[in-house]
Design a protein around this nucleic acid. Structure first.
Lengths: 218, 218
DNA sequence: AAATAATTCAAATGTATATTTGAATTATTC
DNA sequence: GAATAATTCAAATATACATTTGAATTATTT
């Protein structure tokens, strides 16, 4: 009989796994080394032994989480690159939302925290991970905008899409963490909201191609 | 000669002013009483004397900031309530963005922090301040959606709009605080982005009224 | 102006938590 | 299997803060 052996991972790995989850839940400041070690069933000194200090553990934990997320959710959403632009955009939005909705993906939770309370990690994340994805999505948006593809239209449309996605991330996180005395967003259905964002955004982009009908005015 | 007398405000007021600014900048945890007192030119013990403890100062500072914000930016954006729905929506979006862009308005910065790292303050803010505004904006969206005004369409459209606005708040805050080695959003023009959000969102809402053309598909 | 209350102040105390230490244990190499 | 390196451990140390204290000062009342 082949022994499957679900062996207990080594201390370093347990720390990374636990830390990424806890940092995602409570942020850098509010997560204590003592808590991480307790949940990871490791000694209090193991963080300093394996990672030098808390800040470095935070950095490594984020990278660790990022690798897992990316493997589980390819950024193009599985849409081939010769597909029409609207499908490619939809694929990317679905991938983004998939990562946000995946409870094992701590990518966005950590970024969300970072954006509210930046550490030295944020600039690295932005440059190395966020910016490339941003450029790729903006290229698609540019295609969709056609002759209306001014730099500003492209950037703002991108911001509109990302903003909608991040908002879901925040809602989800808030509901999960804070013990709210009521339910704010009655429906927190990731799939339905994802399709809404796609439809809403494609219409928004399409409208930018029109010669500018009265907006805000009648 | 009438003496204008720009007198130094009393300790309590100086603490509230300084605290609301600092909490907005760095959040509850990362702001120390010592820092607040130094900047407010008050003694270290004055917080405990005037506000019992740090948490209560935080609460009072938020209320203080909220009052100022609301006075400076009426929520309806000055649009009369008998104006057409798209204008009323535009008014509310402009008011929202106005508050976000106003450097003396610490309302959103604090909420932003709260959403990432909730304290006991968050539930109160949501119930008392956010929810009423949310209901008002959703009523307008409902009008605009007409026969397509399902509960889900209304909620999701609202989320789309708020998400876009909050995203600007985050961008602005990130650029202001973190020392980024580059400029992410090339244009951080609040007015231009506001008009973009209005146009983008009205088109998104209008699209929901259509029988459902292929979205994401061709 | 004396008496009383409110406020400010510098220093002390308490607490939470990151980090270090050196011995004990386990794994790896020769 | 002895020697060496890697890892774990409980306890000690260090640091950053919030909070308290009681005296000193200022403002208010009578």
């Amino acid at each position: 009989m082949s022994t499957p052996k679900p062996r207990r991972p080594d201390t370093r790995t347990r720390l990374l796994t636990t830390a990424s989850r806890m940092f995602a839940e409570k942020g850098f400041q509010e997560t204590t080394i003592a808590d991480i070690c307790k949940q990871a069933e490791a000694n209090i000194a193991s963080v300093n032994y394996h990672f030098r200090d808390k800040e470095n553990l935070y950095l490594q934990a984020w990278r660790f989480a990022f690798q897992l997320d990316l493997a589980a959710h390819p950024v193009d959403g599985g849409v081939p690159c010769d597909a029409p632009a609207n499908q490619r955009l939809a694929g990317r939005i679905r991938s983004l939302m998939g990562r946000i909705d995946d409870d094992n993906s701590h990518f966005f939770a950590i970024i969300n925290k970072e954006m509210a309370q930046p550490t030295q990690l944020l600039p690295e994340i932005l440059v190395k991970e966020i910016n490339p994805q941003r450029q790729a999505m903006m290229a698609i948006i540019k295609e969709l905008l056609g002759s209306a593809a001014s730099e500003q239209n492209v950037q703002y449309s991108h911001a509109s899409i990302i903003g909608q996605c991040f908002h879901f991330a925040r809602m989800k996180h808030m509901l999960a963490n804070s013990q709210l005395p009521f339910e704010l967003p009655d429906e927190l259905d990731a799939t339905a909201y994802t399709e809404h964002v796609i439809r809403f955004s494609l219409a928004g982009i399409a409208a930018l191609r029109q010669p500018m009908s009265g907006n805000g005015e009648i």
